[in-house]
Design a protein around this nucleic acid. Structure first.
Lengths: 277, 277
DNA sequence: TATACTAATGACTAACTAGTCAGTTGTCAA
DNA sequence: TTGACAACTGACTAGTTAGTCATTAGTATA
């Protein structure tokens, strides 16, 4: 397990520099100081490593944003916190950010694209819920344009510091983008992306996660982590999922317990959605 | 020469699908119906092919936009024409557009990155001149933010139709983005990208093209193209470059003669800048 | 028809790749 | 000390890659 993490860390560095395909398993193992065989004890294949990386960071990423959005009570702070969290994550995990921007689309492997696309749509969902909460029905006609503008800001402004490592004033960046977003939200009259247009490319993916799938993931999580409050909470949450007995406030408390544990973030996100928090 | 074009066309299709590295020379030659040896008669290496592709499309691309911007007399149409031309080009050369978005940064080869970066800066220069002409000194403080927002629009909105091939209403798209751009230009008060910040990452590249370099390129161009008005014009322009004798209006006419010829577009762009049109 | 030249071929090399597996090492418990 | 077991190694296979070059096909001129 610790070895798996080592490989993922070191591989990420190389991928960010050279890209997936240009990086060989040889290079990765050399960079880790382990043998080729040891690599294949942790991962079935090179592809599995890549998928694991995507899952690891994207779940972390979306989970953070989603939590921030859902738990900011004051609407006035919401956009600011959104941008701040986004760029803070990008900055902290700049290696993964580079990969994401670089390799975001059809690199070769159908599975990668679908995975990244699915996560991209989750992110859109989070942005959409934020936009709707902030601006209400007034922006019904222009909400998809707004989402695409926000995504545009995220892309161009993150490149600015991902690829030239400049000193970054996160506070100013967030404030600046909040102003831009508010401006667009208040004054756009000519939307380009209609609801019909969105339907046209939203057919695939977007499948709901079933209770059984969540149970599987909890199970896996329980095995992975050591004896702790998080583990106890997970076990109780699993029972709650099978047979609801606890009151909502208790469940919410249990979710708070596991919220920050790196291995539980994704489960926490799924459960929050499942229980309707 | 005709074979070179064939290889570039067919390679582009494969690159757009699979990326540079995932596409082998074998695949390219098979797709062209030629032998491996024949490939190496046209290009010294696989890298040379890629560089040639970048040059071919980027020069075409920037040249088109630059001409459109410089030759639109009415400021009211300028932004509209800019967006229209950009997305029209992206749409027509969607294969190259995909590659550009995908592979825009450090894929592995230092030379590619520098090339694309240099063209990117040329594009920024064109956008900057347009923004300054449209909004004047009012936007002095926010002009770089404006450029980055425009680039953000270009990125997100082009992905929309590059990767899901939807029906595209170019007119509506351009109008919609014109409105957004004007909104931002008029109301932004909190810029993020200061002039100092720009200086920090603008050190490399951006070298001016010398008269001698232009002469070299003209020479090459004259050899490449058949006997024609374009060729005659080129020869006269070359003489003008060595020894200015013709009046500006005549030079401008000669430039008009070569403007649309695919092999001369880049030369025309360089000469326009050199003669100050 | 003979000659000279260029265009084109594809088997070949050397260097790489992902993935395997027989064998070695290290670490425990008995 | 012995035995059992898991962790680990790196030479190995089978395949792909970019690039070369002796050979051949095609064409134009004398």
């Amino acid at each position: 397990m610790i070895k798996k993490q080592l490989i993922m860390d070191k591989a990420l560095e190389l991928f960010a520099e050279q890209g997936f395909e240009a990086t060989s398993v040889q290079q990765i193992t050399a960079h880790c100081g382990i043998s080729k065989g040891a690599f294949y004890l942790s991962f079935k294949s090179k592809d599995e490593l890549i998928l694991a990386l995507i899952d690891h960071f994207m779940t972390q990423f979306i989970t953070n944003i989603d939590y921030e959005v859902k738990n900011t009570k004051n609407d006035g702070d919401l956009l600011y916190k959104f941008y701040y969290t986004i760029f803070d994550s990008f900055h902290k995990h700049s290696d993964f950010g580079k990969i994401l921007i670089k390799e975001q689309m059809q690199s070769f492997n159908e599975e990668f694209i679908l995975k990244i696309l699915a996560y991209d749509q989750l992110m859109e969902k989070v942005i959409l819920s934020m936009v709707e909460r902030l601006y209400g029905e007034k922006i019904e006609q222009i909400k998809y344009d707004l989402i695409y503008c926000i995504k545009g800001f995220m892309k161009t402004y993150s490149e600015l510091f991902l690829f030239h490592n400049l000193p970054l004033d996160l506070n100013l960046l967030a404030e600046s983008l909040v102003e831009k977003t508010n401006l667009l939200a208040k004054h756009i009259t000519i939307p380009f992306i209609s609801t019909e247009l969105v339907q046209l490319f939203k057919q695939p993916t977007q499948k709901e996660v079933t209770k059984e799938q969540i149970l599987d993931i909890i199970e896996q999580c329980i095995e992975e982590i050591a004896e702790s409050i998080e583990k106890e909470s997970l076990i109780l949450l699993k029972q709650q999922l099978l047979e609801p007995t606890l009151s909502p406030v208790l469940v919410k408390g249990l979710l708070e317990n596991i919220r920050t544990h790196p291995h539980c973030k994704w489960v926490a996100y799924l459960l929050r959605n499942y229980f309707g928090f």
